[in-house]
Amino acid sequence: MNWEYIASIVNSTLRMTTPILLAALGSAICSKVGVFNIALEAQMLIATFFSIVVNYFTRNVYLSVLAGIFSGALIGYIVAVLQVKYRAADMVIGTSMNLLVSGATSFLLYLIFGLRGKLVDSSLVSLPKINLPLIRDIPFLGRMLENLTIIDYLAYVIAILMFIYLYKTVSGFRTLSVGINKEASESLGTKALRIQMSVVTLSGALCGLGGVVLSMGQVTMFTENMTSGRGFIAMAAASLGVSHPLLTIVSSLFFGLCQSIGSALQNVIKSQLTMTLPYIATILALMLSGWRSLKSKNGRSI
């Protein structure tokens, strides 16, 4: 095996992982407070669009990133209001939000730019790439970490911070208590509804950041439905990582690896077939985690 090749696979795995990891963290924290959020796809997609729109008009990276985060958080907030506050069915809200954002982004793309399908422009700015001075020159490691963006590193920092918050702080303990027993937490004065709503909004912001990586990381463009199921893959990653921030890193890396292998194999196998790899891997991973939990329960009932 060629070391150079392995390093490049690792490099692309890291890049592919970031959006999934960020969205998976969003999914994980939602399920920690007892909300089943299916609108991750919408939260990501809106961010890919608005970051590029702001990018197009301002040529400013920071504003673009902020636009992505805020638009994701906005969708998260709408989901929070409908699903948490008014207790509408999660599936209905999730699927309609996903479709709504998919329609709305295409609508705006045509309205603002008169374009169909995608928006590419050579003057769009992408996220700055970081090449750490010393590490850059170490052969294997340098190639592995080549051209990563700050968000690629930030994602892991966020995961660790989330872990510390949830399991080490008082406020995190109360957040977890909402998911464990909402009624009990409320009986002792915790504002459960407000916590759930903030968490869902936060998941929107996280997915938004993930969306920004998609549209301004490896490529700098917007394509219709460019998230292509990543929100759902992220849900699978979160459930595989039993909604624990650190385990979710591991499961997200697995899905990143699958995508990276998928695109690496395109030279050998036709791309339409390799593109199915991440989706099939998701199903297999869900089977594995289901089989694991079934075994531990020793097959009671059914």
Binding site: I38, M91, S228, G229, F232, I233, M235, A236, S239, K270, Q272, L273, M275, T276, Y279, I280, T282, I283, L286, M287, G290, W291, S293, L294
Partner: peptide, 30 residues
């Protein structure tokens, strides 16, 4: 898969949407 492995039917059916779409795309492309 839901019966035997308790996979989430939501995620599983959605993933199979993409699989179906890519596989047929392969056939009509080649």
């Amino acid at each position: 898969l839901t019966w035997k492995f308790r996979v989430s039917m939501v995620i599983c059916t959605l993933m199979l949407d993409y699989v179906a779409s890519y596989i047929t795309s392969y056939f009509v492309t080649y």
